[in-house]
């Protein structure tokens, strides 16, 4: 399979792609989520010059590009971004929501983070880009490919360039309120008959130190690290359960004795169940790595 083509059938797809009614759009407009990413991007701006280039891996609905666009207005800078994601629905949504401006230009590319060197060959500056962002995405890359994604990001950076990463899916994300997060999911699952907990969770949650190690193994230096609590209102909990990747991850955390419900059916039950939850907090982990001279 050629890089960038037929990604929908690729084994690198870790979860079901987004579509109308089963997507990230509603959740992506929630304030706590955007604020968490805005704070990290403000931090990243300290390392970027008046004109900079960036590659966003797993661009999803375009949040990183929208943030960079906003920063170019606020800091009176100029930026060009190449945004890569395998999900055509998300890409289309992102492109629609992120028009170019005088200061900002985005290119939208269907493909995988592992393949960015090939995908972006001849497009990005020869000496490398100033920033690679992997926002809320690294945990969505198949576990065996995570190292290669960060390494690929490191290779396309210019010296002193940065890799910006955050994740709300590490093993500390819900360490102090795991039951509160799990109960609504359990309630929803039980609507489909007897269930048992799967041996492995639907999404591997690594220790933050493992991601730090991946960055350092890629030859990068950790220059910023922070753990930040992010509290989501009930409506955000409902809306995240419209996202196919989340729903599939939760569904894979259970073994359904009467057979798995469809994603749509399970999504509906999850939304009802989380709709009765109080606001919940996750710990977001942020990293900024820098490429040495």
């Amino acid at each position: 399979m050629a890089v960038g083509e037929r990604v929908e059938q690729s084994p690198k797809i870790y979860h079901t792609l987004q579509k109308e009614g089963m997507n990230y759009t509603a959740f992506s407009r929630h304030y706590p989520y955007r604020r968490e990413n805005a704070e990290l991007m403000l931090e990243a701006m300290l390392y970027l010059s008046a004109r900079f280039t960036g590659v966003d891996i797993g661009s999803g609905n375009g949040l990183a590009a929208q943030l960079v666009k906003g920063m170019t207005e606020i800091f009176l800078r100029e930026a060009v971004m190449w945004c890569v994601d395998p999900d055509p629905y998300a890409l289309a949504q992102a492109e629609k929501d992120t028009p170019s401006s005088d200061r900002f230009k985005a290119h939208w590319i269907k493909g995988f983070g592992q393949d960015i060197e090939v995908l972006l060959n001849g497009q990005i500056p020869e000496d490398g880009v100033d920033m690679v962002s992997i926002l809320g995405t690294i945990h969505e890359v198949p576990p065996d490919d995570q190292t290669s994604v960060i390494s690929a990001g490191a290779r396309i950076l210019r010296p002193r360039g940065i890799v910006v990463v955050n994740s709300e899916f590490t093993d500390i994300a819900t360490a102090d309120n795991e039951t509160l997060w799990a109960m609504p999911a359990g309630r929803a699952a039980m609507k489909f008959g007897r269930v048992t907990k799967a041996e492995k969770p639907g999404l591997l949650q690594r220790a933050p130190a493992e991601y730090t190690q991946m960055g350092e193994n890629a030859g990068l230096v950790l220059v910023y690290y922070q753990v930040v609590p992010v509290t989501y209102p009930t409506q955000a909990l409902v809306d995240i359960n419209q996202y196919s990747g989340w729903v599939e991850g939760v569904r894979n955390s259970f073994i359904f004795e009467n057979g798995q419900p469809s994603l749509e059916e399970f999504s509906r039950e999850l939304q009802l169940s989380y709709g009765r939850s109080k606001p919940l907090t996750r710990q977001s982990v942020r990293w900024i790595f820098q490429k040495p001279n």
Binding site: R34, R35, A38, E39, M41, L42, G70, M71, E73, I74, F75
Partner: peptide, 13 residues
């Protein structure tokens, strides 16, 4: 001023 704009997701204009 810049951070307030960024957190509010607003442009200076």
């Amino acid at each position: 001023m810049r951070n307030a704009l960024a957190y509010a997701y607003l442009n200076p204009s």
